[in-house]
Each structure stands twice: as C-alpha cells, then as structure tokens.
C-alpha cells in the first residue's frame, strides 16, 4: 500500500491510469465492444460451420442446435461434417471457372489501376494549379456516383461495338471506375513525400520523369501497396459492373453466386451457394490476416488530412 502511495506522488500520470475503480461508464462501453465483436464475428462462424452440414441442418426448422451438431448430416452421410456443398459448387457447378475469371479480372485491374494512378496521383500532388484542383473535385464526384448509373451508359455502345461480355472490357471499366479513388489516395500519399527530394534531383539535371523514376518510385511502395489493397477489394467485391457486363461463361465469383441462387431452388442446392459464399470470403479473411496494418492506415489516410 505504501509503495503504491509513493508511486502516486512520484508519477501522477501513471497512477491516474492505474486507478482501478470501475465506473459504470467503463462497464457499459466494454459491454458494447463485446456485443459488437460477437455481432461482427458470429455470422461468419455460423456460416462457415454450417457450410459443412446438409441443408436440413443448416436451415433447420425443428431445432437450431441441429446446425451445430449436424443430426441430419450424420443420418444422411454418416459423419457430422460433409464436403457435399463444396463438391457441388466447385465440381458440379464449375465454380473454379469463376474463380479463374475473378483472378484474371482482379489481377489486371489492380496492376493497371496502380500504374495509371501513381502517374496521375504524382502529377496532381506536385502541381498546385487550379486545373489540378478541379480534376480532384471531378474525381470526388465520380467517386460518389453509384456504379450502376454508369453501367446503364455502357450497355448500348458495348452491344453496338460487339465488345460486351468479355473480360478485357470489364477490366478496363473497373480500372476507370477505380481511378477516382486511387487518384485521391495516391495524391494524398505523394503529398507526404517531401517535394525537395525530386526537386533536388531535377536541379542535378534529371528530367521530371527521371526524377520520378529514380527518386520517387523507390520510396512509394508502402502507399502503392495500401492503395493496391483497396483496388483489389473494389474489383473483387464488385457486383453491379460484373453482373451486367459479363456473359454467363465469363462470370466472376460474385455474379456467379447470385446466379446460383436463381437456378438452385432444388433441395440441397442452397448448400452449394453457402459453400461458394464461404469460398469467396476465404481470400478476404487471409487478406485481413496479413495486411491488417495497411488496411487500417489506408482507411484513415484520407481522414487525417481532413
């Protein structure tokens, strides 16, 4: 006790923190956090667990505990876990084709968006002129527009030119839709790289492009990776563009899941969709696991500048 009192005198800042009288406000806020974490995580656990069951367990009218213990799953397959849903989705419905399509679309969208975005974002960050400002404002308005409003403008011309339904069209559209966001993010990132760096290179005789190539590119990777993560998410999560612009054999994961639901009203096939949904969430889970820090810093990058 005595030592505690002494330490309070010695270091007031520490002692006020270690004062352990529990206030009702603290309890409420901790309870709120706990409740939120349960609400945030439970649906994922539930669906992941349930994806290894049969439909009459996952959608059990008699007893919700069936989905946990898998009573009907044991009766039908002899084991409490079954891969039937995954087999149905990946093999019978050829979900792997959609996965390959998604892979192609996402890879090229990210690479092209980042290339265009770094060049443009760098230019906007280094030019203090009025037209640069207006470009950023236009990008903000473009960023806010619902994607489906643009899609209604694409369809007729794409049909006319006969480029509807193929992957390259979708990739370039996703790149364009991605640009406003990428520009804003990389713009604010390049503002944080001191002007002196590339300007001193130019004093030494570099052209603007050489300065960009030799001075800026080596230090820009943290910002590019963060922006790339969000470009990935936009391309991967998109439904409006991919659902309207891809023919059924070129469908990516997300519209494929939606069309599963349209065609699979038959008993048991709902589990195909559940398995596909779990498969589609898995990459995102891995992404958060490895890049949590970058995602958080990216979310707040625009915010800190106000």
């Amino acid at each position: 006790m005595a030592t505690k009192a002494q330490s309070r005198i010695a270091a007031p800042a520490v002692s006020t923190k270690s004062r352990t009288r529990i206030q009702p406000l603290t309890v409420i806020s901790l309870a709120l956090v706990a409740l939120w974490l349960i609400i945030a995580a439970f649906p994922f656990f539930w669906t992941f667990w349930g994806s290894f069951k049969v439909q009459s367990d996952f959608f059990s009218k008699t007893d919700w505990q069936n989905a946990i213990y898998g009573v009907n799953t044991i009766r039908q397959t002899g084991s409490p876990f079954t891969l039937e849903g995954y087999h149905g989705a990946w093999v019978d419905e050829e979900f792997w084709r959609n996965v390959i399509n998604s892979g192609i679309v996402v890879f090229f969208t990210v690479v092209i968006s980042l290339t265009f975005g770094t060049l443009g974002g760098y230019a906007l960050a280094r030019s203090g002129r009025r037209y640069a400002f207006w470009l950023l404002m236009a990008a903000l308005v473009f960023r806010a527009m619902p994607h489906i409003t643009l899609v209604s403008g694409y369809l007729l011309p794409f049909f006319e030119w006969n480029i509807w339904g193929i992957l390259p069209t979708t990739i370039i559209v996703l790149v364009a839709i991605n640009q406003p966001f990428t520009l804003w993010m990389l713009h604010s990132f390049f503002l944080n790289i001191p002007k002196d760096m590339d300007e001193s290179a130019m004093v030494d005789g570099c052209t603007r492009f050489q300065a960009f190539r030799h001075v800026i590119i080596p230090v820009m990777w943290p910002g590019v990776i963060t922006t790339g993560l969000f470009s990935f998410l936009l391309a991967y999560n998109d439904f409006a563009v991919t659902a309207m612009l891809l023919s059924s054999e070129n469908e990516t994961i997300i519209p494929a899941i939606n069309s599963f639901l349209g065609t699979t009203q038959v008993e048991g096939k709902v589990m195909y969709a559940v398995a596909a949904v779990v498969s589609a969430t898995a990459p995102l889970f891995v992404l958060i696991l490895f890049f949590q820090r970058q995602i958080v810093s990216g979310l707040t990058a625009g915010a800190v500048k106000g």
């Binding site: 994922f44 999560n237 949904v277 589609a280 958060i288």
Partner: peptide, 18 residues
C-alpha cells in the same frame, strides 16, 4: 480490429446473403 474488419471488407452481396 481484426474481427471488426470482417463485416466491412466482406463483399456486400456475400455479407448480406450470410
């Protein structure tokens, strides 16, 4: 923070299906 990111980053179509 890890758990909280899940509902935000999940595909809207997939999240609402779940």
């Amino acid at each position: 923070i890890f758990i909280s990111l899940l509902p935000f980053l999940v595909t809207p179509l997939v999240g609402s299906l779940i």
